[in-house]
């Protein structure tokens, strides 16, 4: 199969890969670029574990073809915050115990960030909608909602 060169940024860093037209962004990130914080949960767009931002918008990396993102900017959880400078959402997830097994956490925080970027003061229903594409099997969502609400309330004050 023919391979295409594609250039894009991951967390601010330029990357160039050779991909077939059917290669998903999830495969490229994990298998070519070793961006392991983007998780493989279902490869069908159901679970949200592979959520990343492309130019600030939430997408499932498993439903995105790498050839579609030429010249764009991919942000993963590691682009959202770091050990030295965690994002307020990460601090809040930490404080509220919102991560259990942690497998959904990178995608969950990524979706939450996109939500707050768009709407800094969401109500509980808007928060629930904002993360509805991300399954969590451990927490029952209670502490995740607490964590996001707490940041939203800080934004308000």
């Amino acid at each position: 199969m023919k391979q295409y060169p594609v250039q894009f940024k991951v967390n601010g860093k330029s990357r160039e890969v050779l991909v077939t037209a059917d290669e998903t962004l999830l495969d490229t990130l994990r298998n070519q670029l070793e961006v392991f914080e983007v998780k493989n949960g279902c490869e069908q767009g159901d679970c949200g574990a592979c959520t990343v931002l492309i130019n600030g918008k939430v997408v499932n990396a498993c439903l995105t073809l790498t050839v579609q993102i030429s010249g764009k900017e991919v942000t993963t959880i590691k682009g959202i915050g770091t050990d030295e400078k965690p994002h307020p959402l990460q601090k809040s997830f930490h404080k509220h115990g919102a991560s259990q097994c942690g497998f959904c956490t990178p995608g969950m925080i990524t979706s939450s960030k996109a939500l707050l970027d768009e709407n800094p003061n969401p109500d509980i229903d808007e928060i629930k909608k904002g993360i509805s594409g991300n399954f969590c099997r451990c927490t029952g969502y209670t502490k995740i909602l607490d964590a996001i609400e707490s940041v939203a309330n800080e934004n308000q004050s």
Partner: peptide, 22 residues
């Protein structure tokens, strides 16, 4: 009410699960 000693690794995306080992 203490965050787990290993909570940050998960929240920063550092934790290496089974498939993250090549």
């Amino acid at each position: 009410r203490l965050p787990r000693h290993d909570a940050w690794e998960k929240i920063l995306g550092e934790t290496k699960y089974a498939e993250d080992y090549k």
